[in-house]
Write a protein that binds this DNA or RNA. Structure first.
Lengths: 201, 201, 201, 201
DNA sequence: ACATAATCGAGACGGTACGTCCCGTCTTGTT
DNA sequence: AACAAGACGGGACGTACCGTCTCGATTATGT
């Protein structure tokens, strides 16, 4: 946890911190990030203004932007992909479709950008992002792949981390560096192409 | 072209602009970017100081940071991967090894970060980056794949853009989101895994 | 008043402006003016540096140099000539001696220069200067002259404004355009010469 | 002389300097000074632009602003007061009237301001000004006073420098620090008042 | 009920960088 | 060689935010 006050402790005297202000701050930060700013563009002054809050109220809680961004990201309920279907192929298609559709939403894209670009400069932010946005998805994906290996839909000797990188990386590459408009059935085509190498021979 | 003065033709009156200053500016900008700054951290004042140049001399040429960064990126001779070997598999491995090794160099990483993260806010920068850093490599890769399709090493019906996305995306994903240390033979393993699906059946 | 914030009344929200900073700014401005600069040479940046203050702190109070100079001049307590002696002649001599001795001090000379030279370009500065530096002295002088007219030391029909101009103008002219070194008893000589025309016949 | 090229010398090779340019520069400088600028506000760039001349052409002739201003002032034909009348009183009145009427012209006022205010910072300018603008007038005035002393209109023991300071200083003071509108017969009134002390008893 | 005390919004503080303007110097090609 | 044009390194301008620091006002707890 990055907050500075221990939560579960003795109720100290004085006016308690306003939860409302806190939420407004987080929300304002996400709003601004969602408008395309990087961590550096994200200005405390702008957050304070948008949240209708004094700058002190922010600095009292987070000593730097990183910590605030970390908490803001954490508050983003990872709207994990829904439950799975029947065949591995269909699950993979569904998964990639979710990933693709998310990449349309501004907020998601910006979070993604932050995670990718600020990993050197703000490693804690990147780490936190990985934890909340990458890991759960990877676990989901990994479960699907292992189910396939178990039931014979996929090769038993499949290199799972590699397979996940192939699927996720391909989708990211296509959506990032697309030359033209993306095909409507992009997810299906990726899965079908990739599965050619994943299926038992 | 982003420079403000037309290059060809008329030899305008007055002292001509100094090429030396121009190079110093570009070099200083790349230096600073290479130290880990994003486009936003990149300060004109710092560039001017490092280049030993007045701010005017910068603003005379580029009216904003974006344009300067675009030209700076363009000046980075993409040290395109060297010539190819004999088999498609070895060429792909060699190509991915170059990509992987580049990702270690700070300057390249930063350029990469800029390209990826600033694509929303600074679309022209991203576009220029694509042109100088992505496209030539993709053409190289595409040539290798088509050679393979022609000589029977690869399936004749291979979806080339998809295949390129698989190779490049996988490498990027692995180097970006590596859980642990990267295997020494990463490039080989990616190629071998992927080729299983690319070879004729 | 030239300050931008209303002084009286309402105790606005937020941290109040620092009187210390204000004094430091005024003092720094006077220092620099005293070193021989005109209003134009007076740089806000230099004032800020010397006062140990941010430029904002200056601009928050005065929107331009003129206003600042006006307030700086106003802060110069005109160390009005001390009380008067017995005879009109001695009072006039004492008065002119003070004027002459002041003209040696750098600060006074510079203030004087500003007042005289900038009257066209910076009329408000000149006006303010007149109010704080000229008027009180003129009132003092006028009182002495009227005392003399009342008690018979001076002609009863003396043109007082004219008499004041004669005394002050002569002193200024002599100190400004002196051909050689000023006589030690300059004030006495002026008074004695001038009084020849001022005394009753 | 402040010009950098010896005038009476050998005709050196190359294109001769343009007299037209020179006149245009002087004229432009006087124009700008006449608009109310001090020596410091007077910018070479502005002069060059107004004169339709390259900055080099100015710097080739004068190495600094002072020198240029000196020559510009020198070019002002001191339109010395016209010949004298019959009585000393009438001559003095006529003289002061000229002085007063000149003080209305912008150019004269500005020259005056420069001379008065820049004497500390630009002593050569002040000296030159004294030579061309003060001295000839003072000599005129001094001649009138001495004529009066010779023919009995004035006291034989009159302190001439003091008398001149009284006349000139009074006029300057009145025109500079006038409280209200100047009386139409200002010159006459000054002379009449002052002469009360100058005449033989 | 009332002092104590941590919080709140507001906004001033010393700074840094911005992009503009002009300085006085220095190159150009032309006259 | 002198000319106009204009680029050069530099310095100050006034603005916008930075992150820190007071302010008076508010809101809870612990007598």
């Amino acid at each position: 946890m990055t907050m500075q006050q221990t939560d579960g402790a003795v109720r100290t005297a004085g006016r308690p911190r306003s939860e409302k202000a806190e939420k407004a701050i987080i929300e304002a930060a996400l709003d601004i990030l969602g408008e395309g700013s990087g961590v550096s563009e994200l200005s405390i002054e702008a957050i304070a203004a948008r949240a209708g809050v004094g700058k002190t109220t922010i600095y009292r809680r987070w000593s730097n932007k990183e910590d605030l961004v970390v908490d803001a990201l954490a508050s983003l309920k990872p709207p994990i992909a829904p439950l799975k279907g029947v065949s591995v192929r269909d699950d993979l298609v569904a998964y990639l479709q979710v990933v693709q559709s998310e990449s349309v939403h501004v907020r998601t894209r910006c979070i993604m950008n932050i995670a990718m670009s600020q990993s050197d400069k703000h490693p804690r932010v990147a780490e936190r992002f990985h934890e909340i946005a990458i890991k759960p998805r990877q676990e989901l994906l990994s479960a699907v792949l292992e189910r396939g290996m178990a039931n014979g839909e996929l090769r038993a000797d499949l290199d799972v981390p590699m397979a996940m990188a192939i699927l996720s990386g391909t989708m990211m590459w296509r959506t990032k560096w697309a030359d033209g408009p993306l095909p409507a059935d992009l997810a299906e085509r990726i899965v079908d192409e990739v599965l050619l190498g994943f299926r038992p021979r």
